[in-house]
Each structure stands twice: as structure tokens, then as C-alpha cells.
Write a protein that binds this DNA or RNA. Structure first.
Lengths: 187, 187
DNA sequence: CGGACTATTGAGACTCCTCAACTAACGTGG
DNA sequence: CCACGTTAGTTGAGGAGTCTCAATAGTCCG
């Protein structure tokens, strides 16, 4: 269930092959902040001073590739092309992270939720209208910097407005794409 | 004054040698979001699809190194060690960016301001108590996701509480470090 | 000494948070 | 298979914090 815990020695880097993993940090105050959801193809386990900075925990059943950090370093040193690929991946993540930084804190609850669902949709990238949303409302709230009540109210509001539908607790369907676009992309 | 504009071809990457530069994005709505302040040693100008994603503009007089993007790419391909340095720098920025993501949106105005001043202090890293703060309140507000009025209220509140002093409009002094620590590091 | 820009302060509206109660879904054991 | 307990999610009321709008003060330059 737990892949690694924060503040423990970082021995390995992971690549998600299947499933969803969450990365979070527990604060001294007892609050828990979900900082990222890792989807297939995502690399995670980057450390600081040899220690993991977050705890990584599977949200669904997940299959991961595991590479020892020193092995990876050795590989990168010997394979310039691989390193370049790696660099591209990290810079891409940096951009995404900054995009996220802009959005969170500047948008209201509904805007943040719409943004989150769009991310899920991009991940899923199946043509189907039904999007898997395996994480709990509480995790979503923590990720978006909202209370779980606010997430609940936002989902229900969009459901009542006929923008979204929830065929199951962990499935969301975009009923009115045009309206959803407007909400998601406005500012 | 303007180093480059968003949505223009990204021909060069820049390294700040001296001064402060801001990077911002103008939204269709007319709002402007400051996404980063670049201090000495910072690399900026990373692009997406060959176009700059932000506009970069000097806040103070600034001296920059400029490297053509294709030249940099060539250098990276031929110098594995340099590329590795580059990778380390980018991953470090990724971590910082994520730290930022956590903080903004989860803290109140005073907490965000304290965080920002701490960043300035780390940049400055002179032992002096007086910290240069060359950017306008409006830029700070935009960076922190607050209105400029909220920034003003936060600064004045901390001044009245005897935590900070403003010997000049663009200079801040931490009068009570212990109390400042508590504000800055609490959650 | 203006004039323009930057910063501060105040009042009211709005959003989100907290606390609390309630409902729905899940799972376990009888 | 159902009753129960547990967890997850929804809804409501009240309060805290920030935003907007508007007015006032301060600063920099010509």
C-alpha cells in the first residue's frame, strides 16, 4: 500500500506502470497535504539530501517499476540520450507544476474541481465519456487546497447544473462539454 | 526592460547574473499573473513547442547571460556532466515549485507574505537584516495570488505587531525574528 | 508645485472554512 | 442474506478571511 515514507532513505525511483498513486506530506500540525497524483508513465521518488520528501501510497491496485537510485544515476551518466529524455520529462513536469501553482490559489472551488477533472480526463485519454476518479473526496480536497465539504458542494453544484453526472462514486461523466469547457478554461 | 514576450519563438535561454526579473502571463480576461521572480543564478526561458510560455521583464537593472537554445542543446548533448548539472538544477526547481504549490492556496495572506519575505532573505543571503524588495506590492500580490490591498494590509499588520519594519518602500527588516519564524513556518 | 503613480485604509459583499447533523455505501459477522 | 457498525459523502448554519469598490495618503519626478 505504502510505496515509501517521507524522511526515509531514498534508495529507489519508481515508474508507474498501472494504477494511481498519491504523494502526500504530513505537517507537524497534523494536517495532510496531497501534493500529487501519479498516473501511468509518471516517474516519482525524487529525493532531497538522500531522503524522500513525501510519502507515496497506492490509491488503487498499482503496478510499479522500481530502479535503484544509484543504478539510475549510473545509467544516466553512461547514456546521454536517456539522460536527455529524462531531462525533457523533468522540465515538462516543471512546467505542469508551475501551471498548477498558477491555478490553485487563484481559482474558486468549482474552477479547481473542473481543472482536476480535466487532468483526470487527459490521463484517461480514452474516448469514453466516463472518467475514473479512484481517489476519495478527501484526497481531492487536500490536493486542491479545499475542505472536503467544499469539494462535495462543488461536485453537487455542477451535477445540479447538468454539467457533470456521477454514475458511480468514483466515476464522473461530462454531460455538457461546452459548459464544462467554459468553466475549466475561464481564467 | 522586456527580455522576451510570451508566445514568441524561443531562441535563447537566459541566466540571471545580477538583478531581479519577473516572469508573468497575461490572461485573456486581462488579469496578469506573476509566476516567478528570477534572482541571480536562476535559469529561465524554457519553452513549450518552441514558444516562450511567459513574458520576462526586468524589475531592477539586470545583467543576463544569453545562450541560444540550439547551442545549449548541442552543448548538453556533447557534455554529459553539464547535462547532469542541468538536470540537477531543474529537479531542484521542480521541488521548489511544488513546495510553492503547497504553500500558496493553503495559507492566509500573512503566511504567504512571510513565506515570500523568507524567499527574499534566502536570495539576499547577506547577513544584514535589511532585505531588498525591489518589486511593487502589485507584483507581490499577483505572485502570491492575493489582491494588492491584502498584501498592503498584511505588511502593515506585521509592521504594527513589531515583527517587520519598512525603512524604505523597497526594504524590509525583520525586527522580531522569533515571531517571524513562527508565522513563516507554521503550516 | 503639481501630476501621476503607488500604497494605505475603510465598508460591504462574497467565498470558503469549521462545526455539526444527517444520509448513503460498504463490509463484517451472525 | 440481513443487521449492524464503520467509513465516506452530503447538507446546513454561522463565522473568518479575502475581494471589490471607493476614498485617502504618500512618493517620485518633472
Amino acid at each position: 500500500m505504502v510505496v515509501y515514507r517521507e524522511d526515509t532513505p531514498a534508495t529507489s525511483v519508481f515508474i508507474n506502470a498501472e494504477g494511481v498513486v498519491k504523494a502526500f506530506k504530513d505537517m507537524p500540525s497534523g494536517r495532510r497535504f496531497v501534493t500529487a497524483f501519479l498516473y501511468p508513465q509518471d516517474v516519482f521518488g525524487l529525493a532531497e539530501n538522500g531522503l524522500y520528501v513525501r510519502t507515496a501510497q497506492a490509491v488503487t491496485h498499482a503496478t510499479l517499476y522500481r530502479i535503484r537510485t544509484d543504478t539510475l544515476m549510473e545509467m544516466l551518466r553512461h547514456d546521454a540520450e536517456l539522460q536527455f529524455q529524462f531531462l525533457c520529462k523533468v522540465t515538462h513536469e516543471l512546467r505542469e507544476s508551475q501551471r498548477q501553482t498558477i491555478a490553485v490559489g487563484r481559482r474558486d472551488a468549482i474552477g479547481r474541481l473542473a481543472m482536476f477533472i480535466r487532468q483526470l480526463q487527459r490521463q484517461h485519454q480514452g474516448g469514453t465519456r466516463d472518467i475514473e476518479m479512484p481517489m476519495s473526496r478527501s484526497d481531492i480536497a487536500s490536493y486542491l487546497g479545499l475542505s472536503l465539504e467544499s469539494v462535495s458542494r462543488a461536485t453537487r453544484t455542477l451535477e445540479r447544473r447538468g454539467v457533470l453526472a456521477f454514475p458511480g462514486r468514483h466515476v464522473v461523466r461530462i454531460v455538457n462539454p461546452a459548459q464544462f469547457d467554459r468553466i475549466e478554461s475561464t481564467l
